[in-house]
Every structure is written in C-alpha cells, then in structure tokens.
Design a protein around this nucleic acid. Structure first.
Lengths: 260, 260
DNA sequence: AAACACTGTTCGGCAATAGCGAACGAGGGA
DNA sequence: TCCCTCGTTCGCTATTGCCGAACAGTGTTT
C-alpha cells in the first residue's frame, strides 16, 4: 500500500463530500496530516486535473478529469454495455424507468438509466450512489452474494434515510431470504418517501453476481395490482441479460459441468 | 509534486485508454517503472475502488468509484447546475440537441446534454471528451481565452478527425477571430462527418470564460437557411447563462468599476 | 486605522517509505 | 509434459515524501 496515493484518494473523497470545495487547511485537518503535505498532494492531483483550484477563493474542488475517467469506466463496463438494449425493452414493456446498478462498497452505483417512455422531465441518475439496503437493486445483489460478504454488509451500520428504512440486520436478512425465494427484491419508500423499486440480480459468465436491473417509480404504480406482472418482466429481463453476459442458467451450468 | 501520486494518475489514464483492461506488466512498461512498483500502486488504487481487478484474468480496469467521483464533480459544478434550465429552453426553442462544455486540457468535456425535443433514440454524451479544435464549443471557449493560453493551445498539435478538420494554426486562428467578432463559433463536420455545431462562450462572475453552450446536429438543419436565427438563440442563451453565473455584461462591469 | 487571525504557499532537513532486483507460485499454450 | 509468462511476495537501499517553521497576501475585528 502506497501511503501517499491512499491519502490522495482520501482527498478526492473529502472533496466529493464538500459541495463548495475545501481549502488546504480543512483537507489537512480531515486527513490528519500537516498542511504542506496536503498541499503537495493537492498540487499533484491538480496537475492531473483530478482536482481544480478556484482562482479566487483558493479552495480546491474535484476536477474535470474525473468525469472523463468515470465515462471511460462506463464505456469499458460490460454489464452496462449489454444492458442498454435490455433496459430500453423493459422500460417500454412496463412503462417505467429502469435502473441498472452495481455494488461498490456498501453503495449501489447506478450505471445505466433508461427513462420512462412517456414522462415529464426526468433527471438522469447515472453515477448516483445509494446505500445498498435502501434500494431494490442493492437488496437483489446482496441477497445472492456469497455468505461471508453478505454477512459483512449486514454487520455494518445501516443508516435510515426515511422512516421506512429497514435498519435491523435480522429483519433485513429475512427480506433477503425472501428475495432469494421469489427471485426479485422490493423497496417501498426506504430511500425516498413515495418511491418504490423492483429488481432482480444479474450474473456474469463466472456465475457470480455482476449487478442488478430493476424498475423505479412511485409506490402506487409499482406495488399496485400489477406488481407480480412487473416482477415477472424484471426477472425475465435479468435472466436474458445474464445470458448475454455468458452466464448459463444455473441448471444448465450444472449440467455442463457434470458432462465434462 | 508527489511522484507516486503522479504515477497513480498516469495509471488511471493508461487504464482509461485500454478498453479491455491492462495487466501489471503492461502498466509497468508504459509507466517505465518496475513491476512491483506498478503492483503496489494498483493495489492501493484498488483499495480505493478507483480500479478493479478482474477476478479471472487478473487484469486491472477502471473502478466504480470513478463514476461516483465524476458524478460528484458534476453536482458541484456551478456552470452545469445553472445551465440545466437554460439548455432545456434552448433545446425546445430550436428543436435541436444542446451541449454544455468546459475546457479540460486540450479537450472539451461535455458536462450537460439536453436532448432534442422530438427525436429518436439519442445517446447521452455527458462525459465525452472532444478535441477543442474540432467542435464549436471548443472554438467558442478558446476564442475568448487570454492570449497566452490561446497561443499555447494553437501551438500544440492539432490532430485531424475528419477530412474537414482544421489542422493549420493560422487558419484556425482566423476562425477564432471571426468567432470573437460574431459572438459565436461554428463547426462543420470537423469532428464527425455530417455533424455540425453552433456555440457561444459563457462567462463566470469574474469575467473569465467558464465554458460554452451550443447546438449539435446534422449540417443540413444547423447550417441551413435558419443558421443566423439559431445563432441568435445560442448567443442569447449564453448571455443569460453568464448573467446567472454572476457575470454582468462587459459594459455594465466597466460602468460599475468606474463608479466605485 | 491598525493589528489581527486566517488563508494558501515556500523552504530545508530528517527519516520514513516507496521503489527496485530477485525469487515465488500459478496458469496456459505448445 | 515442459516451458514460458503472468501476477504476486519479500527485503534492502536511498530516494522521496513528510513535517516544522516561516512567508505573503486578505478580510475581519478591535
């Protein structure tokens, strides 16, 4: 582990959290390093355009190269590339917005967003990070994670975003079990009041979970009478997408392994 | 300048260019460092989720945290935040797609993209990086840059993307002068054949250029009979957006300064 | 009005640390 | 089956990054 690089990354995190930017002194304080140390790191990051310095206030802020790199990440992302067509299909079939997400630490990162076919202004949520336990995508992924990883995530603190957020590990564990049983996960106002989600996990060619795809929208439309119909559409799309990534059906994989 | 951090950034650049990821050996070669050095840097970046290692091939690629940080950059970006409303207005007024961009090194980075009101499938170009001399946004920005900076950009190599790309510094300089005179810049198939652009610079509260806003679309629609009409719309929107950022009109700024 | 407190910044010396060479274990291709 | 190449680990050396102290500029308070 290279200490200075780790500190540089920490700086990016700090700057990402500080909406109006942060000064050298503040950065040094948060990292617990001397001011000149923070300064040298910031100057190096600035040279790479990862941070930018406000000409007037002298404060530092995240830089444009991060957007470029984030975009490069998306373009090299296989799940995202394959999901574009399927997400559009699911959106037009259900009439709802579709999200595709991956797990990054304890957050779900939205890597693709297909808008609702007929809708007013919708803001693009690609790049948004949501705590895993507050969204359907996150539950769908964690539900099928290997036991130790799932246990580790359940042990970590589970902050509440709304009154409906599940913050009890045991309760959440049961919901994950039910998601495994039904093949899809549900969110009901746990991230934002009135918003709901329905999602199913997507597997890659190794059989490991690569991410999840699902619907996002108001509770009334997603969890109403046609909920099971929507769930079927989500699950089918997730299965097709997994196939696209080279993952056979679990049964088929077993059969091939047995035959070889 | 912190050497190891600079190298880490260089690694991100290398990984961003290698679509299928790169191995430790390849990274070490490109940086001109020993293999264990590259390895230590990669592991540190991996711990911060800036890079991810493929579990099977062992190769490294960009990580999800970059998307998160890129998004954080956008959210703290004042020009982008203010431009959303104006871009939508310009799109519906002209019936064309609208881009908002900033200069990052010698590339223009698209920080906002308002879709054409009535259009078929359009792909989102936020995060895309275009060489400044091949797009209207870039020319609009560079045209009003301080002399030394503009000169430096004109001295740098100007790669050709299409047959129409201007690669001669003198010729390009004249076009920038004409952009200064008319208040808007034009691109005609210089980045991609058949695509055109019309853009005007946006100023921040210090009076310096913050970026540019403009239209993107097929040559036939953008540079046809209604070209001057579109140009007026772009220029007006850019002016309003500049106002939003706290920049008075040049005349007004002078007046205030004289009065104080 | 003047001293203050705060900012971002530069300099030089010490030692922690990052970088390298060499060796290891594993995987794939011939 | 052998061999080549890959990603990875280990320990030594001196390079390099880190810190204390001091500098210059601003906006604020007394």
């Amino acid at each position: 582990m290279v200490q200075s690089v780790a500190r540089a990354i920490e700086i990016l995190r700090v700057l990402g959290g500080a909406a109006r930017g942060a000064g050298v002194t503040e950065v040094a304080e948060r990292l617990g390093v001397a001011k000149p140390t923070a300064h040298a790191l910031l100057r190096t990051l600035e040279a790479g355009q990862l941070v930018a310095q406000d000409a007037e206030t002298g404060k530092y802020r995240l830089g444009p190269a991060l957007l470029e790199l984030g975009n490069a990440y998306l373009e090299t992302h296989e799940l995202r590339a394959r999901s574009v067509a399927w997400a559009d299909g699911l959106a037009s079939r259900t009439g709802e917005a579709v999200w595709v997400g991956v797990l990054s630490g304890d957050h779900v990162l939205v890597v693709h967003h297909a808008f609702r076919p007929e809708g007013a202004v919708q803001i693009l949520e690609v790049g948004a990070a949501v705590p895993w336990h507050t969204c359907a995508l996150g539950k769908a992924i964690v539900a099928v994670l290997p036991d130790p990883e799932r246990a580790a995530l359940l042990r970590a603190p589970l902050p509440a975003l709304t009154g409906a957020t599940l913050t009890d590990a045991a309760e959440l564990g049961e919901e994950l079990a039910s998601a495994r049983a039904t093949g899809y996960a549900v969110e009901d106002g746990e991230a934002a009041i009135g918003d709901a989600g329905l999602a199913a996990p997507v597997y890659d060619h190794t059989g490991a979970v690569a991410g999840a795809i699902g619907l996002v929208g108001p509770v009334e439309r997603l969890l109403g009478d046609n909920r099971s119909e929507l769930a079927v559409a989500v699950r089918e799309t997730a299965r097709h997408l997994s196939r696209d990534l080279g993952s056979g059906r679990p049964a088929a994989r077993g059969w091939i392994a047995a035959a070889s």
